[in-house]
Nucleic acid binder design. Structure first.
Lengths: 226, 226
DNA sequence: CCGACGCTTCGGTCGCGGCCGAAGCATGCC
DNA sequence: GGCATGCTTCGGCCGCGACCGAAGCGTCGG
């Protein structure tokens, strides 16, 4: 039983530390230049160039040339999801030792996961949306309720459901070990949180930093008791 | 940004052709001996032994010693899912060349995916269950309806929802490229299909072979128009 | 037009890891 | 006990691929 489309081609790409580090750096969702990725992975530019070419050929990255720079980004959300999936296997496997996820408290509190909110804040937000009846949890599968659609409209999230991307999707949070909200709704909420000035991305990291009044508003909006 | 629980440890395990072939052989869901896996991968017993030890240490396989045999099986459904996920990336990436999935028509028609039905028959079954109102499709996330629970009872599927495994779960079919049904319900339905004599596993393969009368019953039960 | 800068290509070195032959253990059958 | 069978351990060979230095090619700025 050979697997038709070779699974090893992809897995081997992810299996090299240097490449994995570059991909991890791109989990933030924004494109980075070849040089930045080289520094991120701790290798020279020419080595990185080779790796990046392979990742592009493997369909995991997309390249955008701009002047004398090559910008790279993940080829799609599914790449990020596959990586999270592997992380899930990885820390179930070596299930002893340290606590899961990043040490940095700020990262555990609120971070971006590709394009949606993760960490304590992300998990709390999903909990609240379910408690408020805005999202229904069917055996771990999430669906937006009618009430939830109304909330999205009020809150200013445009739900473009023409694409094939699901509106709501549970994404296992690898620090908290519970689900947070991905999908169109998850991405839209984070965009609004930025737009309302409740929080902002810390440059060059995945940390999402809430302002003091922003946090109050966030907690009021996403309170477990409506 | 280092990924805490090392993703490369797992990916590197999956990235070696010999190991991937052994894992693929175990996708059928049943345990195989070390020797069988060695033959499957086309390597000698001693090489296989080394690989299997690594896969066990990595938490991807579980070993059960029985007499002078070592039986290996996938450590869990999540391992199978991660592999399917990677297959998905793999054939989106090299999206040219051949048609996706296995060449063997029997495999495309009906096969087992770990413990549930996949292939044309699996996809058709899920389509029917949705059309019949027994499963609800919320933005690609599946949930069993009350009517569906009644059907499960009549059909003879015991729904043990005490475990953490979801009742219904969409699993992307890598030959048809549409979803079929996984989860407790998916596994239970396949068991009943076997028990009713509608179909049986072809020894040593993932092919599910329907009998002539069994196929009629299957198509009548899972007809798109109730 | 020239130098600075960033990315890529080329060649060569080196180490990790897969692989097998041979030997070592355990189990099961006679 | 003696032998066959199946798995595992050990040791050594070998090739693939990561890595870097140096050089080549494009773009940007003066």
């Amino acid at each position: 039983m050979r697997l038709g489309p070779d699974i090893t081609r992809i897995a081997a790409l992810l299996g090299e530390p240097a490449r994995a580090n570059m991909l991890a750096a791109l989990l933030g969702g924004e494109a980075l230049t070849a040089g930045e990725l080289a520094r991120e992975a701790g290798i020279t530019a020419q080595t990185a160039s080779g790796h990046l070419a392979k990742l592009e050929a493997g369909g995991l990255l997309v390249r955008r040339r701009q002047g004398r720079h090559s910008y790279f980004a993940l080829a799609g959300e599914d790449v990020a999801e596959a990586m999270e999936q592997l992380v899930g296997l990885a820390d179930r496997a070596g299930h002893q030792r340290t606590q899961p996820g990043p040490k940095d408290p700020a990262l555990r509190k609120a971070r971006v996961c590709y394009d949606h909110l993760a960490g304590d804040a992300g998990v709390a937000m999903l909990d609240a949306l379910i408690a408020q009846g805005r999202i229904a949890d069917h055996d771990g599968a999430l669906a937006l309720t009618d009430q939830g659609r109304g909330f999205a409209r009020e809150f200013g999230v445009a739900l473009d459901d023409r694409g094939r991307r699901p509106l709501c999707k549970a994404c296992l949070d690898w620090s908290v070990r519970r689900s947070h909200l991905a999908g169109v709704m998850g991405a839209g909420l984070l965009q609004r949180i930025y737009a309302l000035g409740w929080a902002r991305r810390i440059e060059g990291t995945r940390v999402v930093q809430f302002s003091a009044p922003g946090l109050v508003s966030f907690e009021r909006t996403f309170a477990r008791i409506p």
